[in-house]
């Protein structure tokens, strides 16, 4: 084969070297995507500023809680609002994804070395990175304005637990972005956000609900998200391990749905 021999001098030797691994390509994708998202002003407003704004509005509505010398009630409000606000931010990643799916950019990504599931995790990691400052701002406002007082370790533990608890909800946003029609993503997101917050007891304690609804609440990731976030402020209470398992189960289930959706999106996204 003449032309193969011709090409061999320039083409063949280079093939032996694989200069990049999947892990480094995933990190590359995540950091570049994060930078592009941060450059998008409206997205930053939504993810980072929205939660703290919500907290400020709600905490002023409730006013300074009377008979709260320890600041415990304020802390509970802060955690609930942090969970609610960051929930919206975590799920917002799906809207971006739906746009990319609709445009067909997805297909271009699928002809790279980045495997589908790694792509999804990288995408979730980007959202998680952006959610962290959003949570931190709510906590800052809680300390400065909301009258929440606690040792630094309690603050950090609560922040960390809330952040980890958001993992399944970030994946949920991605699953919606992969499965729901682009036009409907915003609506579905809002509906789920309201439903999950209300039924999960972010607006008023689930303990005030009728028992049937309490069962529902205990199956929802939002209920346990807030429970985990509250725990460090409630010394003496047992650690909510049930919540860890529930959140884990949601993560696994949604990841499977996401992987299926990614495959489907590649085959059906616009050409």
């Amino acid at each position: 084969m003449t032309s193969a021999t011709l090409g061999a001098t320039t083409v063949a030797p280079r093939r032996e070297v694989m200069t990049r691994g999947v892990a480094s390509s995933a990190v590359h994708y995540a950091t570049h995507t994060a930078v592009l998202m941060i450059k998008n002003f409206s997205f930053v407003i939504f993810t980072v500023i929205m939660p703290v704004s919500l907290y400020l509005v709600f905490s002023s509505l409730y006013g300074n809680v009377p008979d709260d010398p320890t600041g415990l009630a304020s802390a509970m409000i802060m955690v609930s609002m942090a969970a609610y606000g960051s929930l919206g931010a975590a799920m917002s990643g799906g809207a971006h994804l739906a746009v990319e799916r609709r445009s067909g950019w997805f297909r271009q990504l699928m002809i790279t070395m980045l495997p589908g599931r790694v792509f999804l995790w990288a995408r979730a990691a980007v959202i998680m990175m952006l959610v962290l400052p959003a949570l931190a701002l709510v906590f800052l406002a809680g300390g400065l304005i909301g009258g929440v007082q606690a040792p630094a370790t309690v603050w950090l533990a609560s922040l960390g637990l809330l952040w980890l608890g958001l993992i399944p909800l970030t994946v949920l946003g991605i699953v919606i972005g992969l499965w729901v029609k682009t036009e409907a993503v915003q609506g579905v997101n809002t509906l789920l956000l309201l439903g999950l917050s209300l039924l999960g007891g972010l607006w008023f304690p689930a303990e005030l609900m009728p028992s049937g609804m309490q069962h529902v609440a205990h199956a929802l990731p939002t209920y346990w998200l807030a429970a985990l976030g509250r725990h460090p402020f409630l010394p003496g209470d047992a650690f909510p391990w049930t919540g860890v398992w529930v959140l884990l189960a949601w993560s696994v289930g949604l990841t499977v749905l996401g992987a299926l959706g990614y495959r489907r999106a590649g085959a059906t996204s616009k050409r």
Partner: peptide, 16 residues
């Protein structure tokens, strides 16, 4: 595809 042996220009391929 994974090993970079194929490159493609998709029909009306979208851009980011």
């Amino acid at each position: 595809v994974r090993t970079g042996r194929v490159g493609a220009m998709l029909q009306a391929g979208a851009l980011l």
